[in-house]
Amino acid sequence: MSALVNISNLGVTFRDGPRRVAALSDVNLTIEAGERLGIIGESGSGKSTLALALTGLLPASAEVSGRIDWADGQPILGRDIGMVFQDPSSSLDPVMSIGEQVAEGAVAHLGLSWGAAKERARDLLAQVKLPDPDGLLRAFPHQLSGGQRQRVAIAAAMAAGPRVLIADEATSALDTIVQAEVVSLLDGLVKQQGITLIFITHDIALASQLADRIAVFRHAQLVEVGTARQVVTQPREAYTAALLGAHLDLGTPPLIGVAP
């Protein structure tokens, strides 16, 4: 594998009244081309700030230090990087048809005509396994369920054929059944197309199922990074072990005794 991007000594601070608060501090991380990287952390750990820094979406008030070096030059958001956020109701435009929203990236970045872009949108909607892609082109977000909307958001992120897909808590608002479907969809898409996936989540088990490597963030710092297997079975840092200890799945012993 070759490096897609080298992050060195990255620091990001935001202003909070008179103080400056570090959202990322001295982060060093290389993301390999074609890998699936899980970014794990609790609220305020800096994991979303990392996504914003990589995509150039940091607000003007953020102060950035250190370097982000892309192997093939600074990528363009929407063309080279697709982004999927937690809440498709706020990332999709409620008054724009599904067809236009998915086609827009292909028109803007691939220079396709609207007609050709709509055909591409229909294919993408089929790829994200939405029923009746033809009919959907003319539908609006409010007509879809949360899981369907997130599939549309994924299709829109894929429209210009990006090399990198960043999913920031993209399944956190979905119920577990739909979450499993969307994760399997993402997994299939990135494998099939050789896309680098950066999967940001608070759920370490979910990351362990999907990712090749996991990076753990806490309090603006990168705590540890390793293969998914190493991080979840042999964590090097006490914080990672604590996160694993707090994880609940069906193998966790119940907290309660027998029924009264």
């Binding site: 577990t176 059944i177 979450q179 499993a180 759920d203 370490i204 088990a205 979910l206 362990s208 199922q209 998914a228 297997r229 979840v232 079975t233 694993l244 994880h247 799945d249 069906l250 193998g251 119940p254 029924a259």
Partner: peptide
Amino acid sequence: PTGQVIAAPQSPTGKALVAAVPRLLQA
């Protein structure tokens, strides 16, 4: 009883909910 339903869910929804729980990668 919770343990019983999770160990052997009878309904399709129960089966789907049990199957969808993210599981930590094991050694």
